[in-house]
């Protein structure tokens, strides 16, 4: 974690930031291994849910253990080109 604990505490996070990311525009053939590999780089993952029905395919929920890791992931993966598709990442409200 780049941020030291002290600077983490004094930094107030916007209210919409939370640990649950809603990801869209994923390739349909994305595997759990791909998801853990890509999102796991930013911090410990609490849970991943991948859409498996016509209406949910290509979307997923990625929950981090730590809110700062979720923020770092969201900031870095927004618009990330994965297998030719640009990811849409947002905090789940």
């Amino acid at each position: 974690m780049a941020m030291s604990l002290k600077s983490r505490v004094s930094v107030a996070l916007p209210p919409d930031v939370n640990r649950m990311l809603y990801v869209r525009n994923l390739p349909f053939k994305i595997t759990p291994e791909d998801m853990y590999d890509l999102f796991g780089r930013y911090g410990a993952i609490r849970q991943i849910r991948i859409g498996n029905e016509p209406g949910t395919k290509g979307t997923a929920f990625v929950v981090y253990e730590d809110i700062f890791d979720a923020k770092t992931a969201c900031d870095h993966l927004q618009g990330f080109n994965l297998m030719g598709r640009y990811l849409i990442v947002a905090y789940y409200q």
Binding site: M20, I48, E53, G55, F61
Partner: peptide, 9 residues
């Protein structure tokens, strides 16, 4: 989180 239509992997 929604349960319907999603698989916890």
């Amino acid at each position: 989180l929604p349960i319907e239509g999603y698989e916890i992997v």
